Amino acid sequence: MEMNTTELLLALLKALPINILIIIMSAALGFLFAIVLTILRIKRIPVFSQIADLYVSFARSVPGLILLFIAYFGIPEILTLIGLNSVDVSPMHAAIISMGFYHSGYISEIFRPAYLSVDKSQHEAADSLGYTPTQKFFRIILPQMIPVALPGYGNGLVYLIHDTSLIFAIGIVDIMGTAELFISRSYGTNQIFIYFVIAFMFSAMCFTADSLVRKLEKKTSF
């Protein structure tokens, strides 16, 4: 079957918001959970800090595709065991959860050294001025953490964008899933062209994310 290039491009653009939504939601989930992990690891809370260390090691060593399958097939099983089998877990939910928690392991490894890079004298100065822990963090610590963490965080976003190329494996018709449908329809005769188009789309997303992070770096640099 002859492939219609215009039809392909329109179909890919129509599927693109799915990837963007999963990237945004996974990045937000990963960011929030990374903060929790970082706090537990820095404060060295007994038991919890060891669990956080183990989780970060697990998330960074297991392939994203495996975590995607674990979330997709495992979450319904867990919900059934606790009596919540009526709760629907869609492929989108599974993708956001798995990608978010996978992402958090990497981001925690960026946040922790950024926090530790702040000189102890800064903490002592804030304490001597009577700052509460919240005031100390947002007024003194965070402004110094951000320039250190941003380059690594930008890389983490790029890796997350790359990982969304896997979500078609659980039945999500994103840009990669759409590409595979067109390749099947054309019996593989146009797959090189299609993959080049997909490569360009992922490159554009990565370039956009990287540009936004670089602009933020310039605004927060001392």
Rank of each mutant, 00 (worst) to 15 (best):
T5S: 07
T6Q: 11
L21G: 01
I22M: 07
M25Q: 13
S26G: 13
G30W: 08
F31G: 05
L32D: 02
I35H: 00
L37Q: 02
T38F: 03
I39L: 14
R41M: 15
R41F: 10
I42Q: 05
V47H: 02
Q50G: 14
D53F: 03
Y55I: 06
R60S: 13
S61D: 11
V62P: 01
L67W: 05
L68T: 03
F69D: 04
F73I: 05
E77F: 02
L79N: 15
I82C: 09
G83L: 12
L84T: 05
N85F: 11
H93Q: 13
H103G: 09
F111K: 02
P113W: 03
Y115L: 15
Y115K: 08
V118H: 05
K120Q: 10
H123E: 10
H123C: 01
E124W: 05
Y131C: 09
F137K: 06
F138Y: 14
V148D: 06
A149M: 13
L150R: 09
Y153K: 00
G154V: 00
L157F: 03
I161V: 12
H162M: 13
L166R: 00
L166K: 01
F168H: 04
F168W: 10
I175D: 01
A179S: 11
L181I: 15
I183A: 10
I192Q: 04
F193H: 00
I198M: 02
F200E: 02
S203V: 03
A204P: 06
C206E: 08
F207K: 07
S221H: 15
S221F: 15
